[in-house]
């Protein structure tokens, strides 16, 4: 399995909240493909129409703050975003992203050293982030062991399935 992602960077600032990622007025569905056309529209109306499959989102502190809507990582996945690199994540978004299979990496240095349009390459297993445009690389903060295990199993759904089978 190829564990490396390559994509063009979409860059945003601090406190990108889940209302901005997917406004509540579109929450009458939870299907990624139906959410995707409205992803980020309140702060970047051009995003959904131009984003390419595999693009990478890079943002500042507290990414995904606000509502618990799992529709936020689903909308990003639906839009084609392959992973999010941020200085820090809000806690519910952090859990949700792991649960729906959106890779996330906490790496302030990568946020500082990356601009919109840069080409990034991310090694999912090692948490290695390479900026090919600037030829710089960084290592993201490692996940705690339990979360590594959860991600390795394929997320919470297989984890619970296993627990139910065991009991």
């Amino acid at each position: 399995m190829d564990t490396s992602l390559k994509g063009k960077v979409w860059k945003y600032g601090d406190n990108i909240d889940t209302d901005v990622i997917i406004p509540a007025r579109y929450l009458s569905t939870s299907l990624p493909e139906e959410l995707a056309p409205h992803c980020m529209e309140d702060i970047d109306a051009g995003f959904a129409g131009v984003v390419s499959k595999g693009d990478i989102m890079v943002a500042g502190n507290n990414f995904g703050c606000g509502s618990s809507r799992e529709h936020a990582p689903l909308a990003l996945l639906g839009a084609g975003i392959s992973c999010v690199v941020a200085r820090s994540f809000a806690r519910i978004f952090y859990r949700n992203a792991i649960n729906v299979g959106l890779p996330i990496f906490e790496c302030p240095e990568a946020e500082e050293g990356t601009q919109k349009g840069d080409e990034l390459e991310v090694d999912l297993e090692k948490g290695l982030i390479l900026n090919r445009t600037r030829n710089v690389s960084w290592t993201a903060r490692p996940f705690p062991p339990f979360l590594r295990e959860l991600i390795g199993l394929g997320g919470l759904v297989p984890y619970v399935k296993k627990q139910l089978g065991a009991s």
Binding site: S68, E70, I92, R95, N99, L156, V160
Partner: peptide, 13 residues
């Protein structure tokens, strides 16, 4: 607060 998948896990387990 948690997302829907975490909540589903809590309902199941």
């Amino acid at each position: 607060g948690v997302g829907s998948t975490d909540l589903a896990g809590a309902w199941a387990l």
